[in-house]
C-alpha cells in the first residue's frame, strides 16, 4: 500500500469518527465506545476492500457487510454517509421517530445496510447464509461480518463458526472487535474468551477458520490481513475448488471509544450520555 493510500484511509477513519461522535452527541446518548472501536476497520472496508456502489445499494455484484454487533450502527451510518449512500443531514436524525437511522442496523430502513441486526449472535449466522447463497448463485463476492468480543459469549456465534467451516465458506471474512470490554466490565472479568492459553485465535482456528490477530487501529495491517484472506479465496478458485477453503476470522485488537478522550478506554462507554459540546470538543481534537 502506498503512503498516500494509507494516509487516505487514516483520513477516512478520522472522518467516520467525527460523524459518529457528531451523530450520537447531537442526540445526547448512544453506543459510542463500540462504534469508535471499529472506525478504522470500516474505513478499510468501504474505502479499499469492498466493492459497493452508493448509487445502487443492492447491486448484485456488491460485497456484503453484516454488522452483527448491530449497536455500532452509528459508525456504519457515518461511513455510509461519507461514502455517499445517503445525505449527511440524515446523521442528525439518529433514533428520532420516523428516522432511517435506528440505533441498531435495519436492512429495510437504511440504504447500504445488508442485514438487520441487534440481537447479538444472529448477524454472523445470517452472514453464513448470505455467503452460502452467493456461492450457490456463482457470484464472486465477499461477505464481511463484524462481531464483538462480548458478543462472542453467545453460543450462536460458535454454531455459526461450525457452519462456515463445515461448508467451507472461504468468501466469508469476519472480524472480532476485540476491545476487551463488555457492559458489566472488562471481558477478562465477565467472560474471558481471549485469555492466555485459550485465546480467540486458538478458538477460531480450532473451529476450522483461518484466524489471525491484527492491530485493529492500524489501517495498513487491517488491509493487508484482508488481502491475505482474499488471496486464500482466490487460490481455492485457481485450484479448481471454488469455495474449498477456510473462512477467515481477524481478531482486531482495539480500544473501546478509540479517538475520543471523553470515552476512550472506558467500560462505561458502551452506551453513554454526553452533550453536544463534549462531542464538538472531541471532533475538534481529532483535527
Amino acid at each position: 500500500m502506498t503512503k498516500e493510500e494509507t494516509a487516505g484511509l487514516e483520513t477516512a477513519a478520522k472522518e467516520i469518527r467525527k460523524r459518529t461522535i457528531d451523530a450520537i452527541g447531537f442526540l445526547g446518548v448512544g453506543h459510542i465506545g463500540g462504534a469508535l472501536s471499529i472506525a478504522d476497520l470500516l474505513a478499510v472496508l468501504y474505502f479499499r476492500a469492498m466493492r459497493v456502489d452508493p448509487a445502487e445499494p443492492r447491486m448484485a455484484s456488491r460485497d456484503r457487510l453484516v454488522l452483527s454487533k448491530g449497536h455500532a450502527g452509528p459508525a456504519l451510518y457515518g461511513t455510509l454517509a461519507l461514502k455517499g449512500f445517503f445525505p449527511e443531514e440524515w446523521l442528525h436524525t439518529l433514533n428520532k421517530g420516523g428516522t432511517n437511522l435506528p440505533s441498531h442496523c435495519d436492512r429495510n430502513k437504511t440504504p447500504g445496510i445488508d442485514m438487520t441486526t441487534g440481537s447479538l449472535g444472529q448477524g454472523i449466522s445470517a452472514a453464513c447464509g448470505i455467503a452460502y447463497a452467493n456461492r450457490m448463485d456463482a457470484r464472486d463476492v465477499f461477505t464481511f461480518a463484524i462481531i464483538g468480543d462480548g458478543e462472542s459469549d453467545e453460543g450462536m456465534v460458535w454454531e455459526a463458526a461450525m457452519f462456515a467451516s463445515h461448508y467451507k465458506l472461504d468468501r466469508l471474512v469476519a472480524f472480532t472487535d476485540n476491545n476487551r470490554m463488555q457492559i458489566d466490565g472488562t471481558t477478562a472479568e465477565i467472560m474471558g474468551l481471549d485469555s492466555p492459553g485459550s485465546d480467540f485465535v486458538a478458538k477460531w482456528a480450532a473451529f476450522g477458520w483461518a484466524a489471525e490477530r491484527v492491530p485493529g487501529h492500524d489501517v495498513e495491517a487491517i488491509a493487508a490481513a484482508i488481502d491475505r484472506a482474499k488471496a486464500r479465496a482466490a487460490a481455492s478458485v485457481a485450484n479448481g475448488s471454488v469455495g474449498g477453503g477456510k473462512p477467515t476470522m481477524l481478531i482486531l485488537d482495539t480500544v473501546k471509544g478509540k479517538g475520543a478522550a471523553f470515552c476512550e478506554g472506558q467500560v462505561g462507554s458502551h452506551n453513554m450520555n454526553f452533550d453536544y459540546e463534549t462531542a464538538k470538543k472531541a471532533i475538534a481534537e481529532l483535527g
Binding site: 449466522s125 447463497a133 450457490m136
Partner: peptide, 23 residues
C-alpha cells in the same frame, strides 16, 4: 438442502441470510 447440524438457532439465522439473498 442445508443441514446446520443440531443447532436450531443457527439454522434459522442461516435461513435469514439465504432469504436476504432472494432464496
Amino acid at each position: 438442502a442445508v443441514n446446520a447440524g443440531v443447532a436450531e438457532a443457527n439454522m434459522v439465522g442461516v435461513a435469514a441470510g439465504l432469504a436476504a439473498e432472494g432464496k
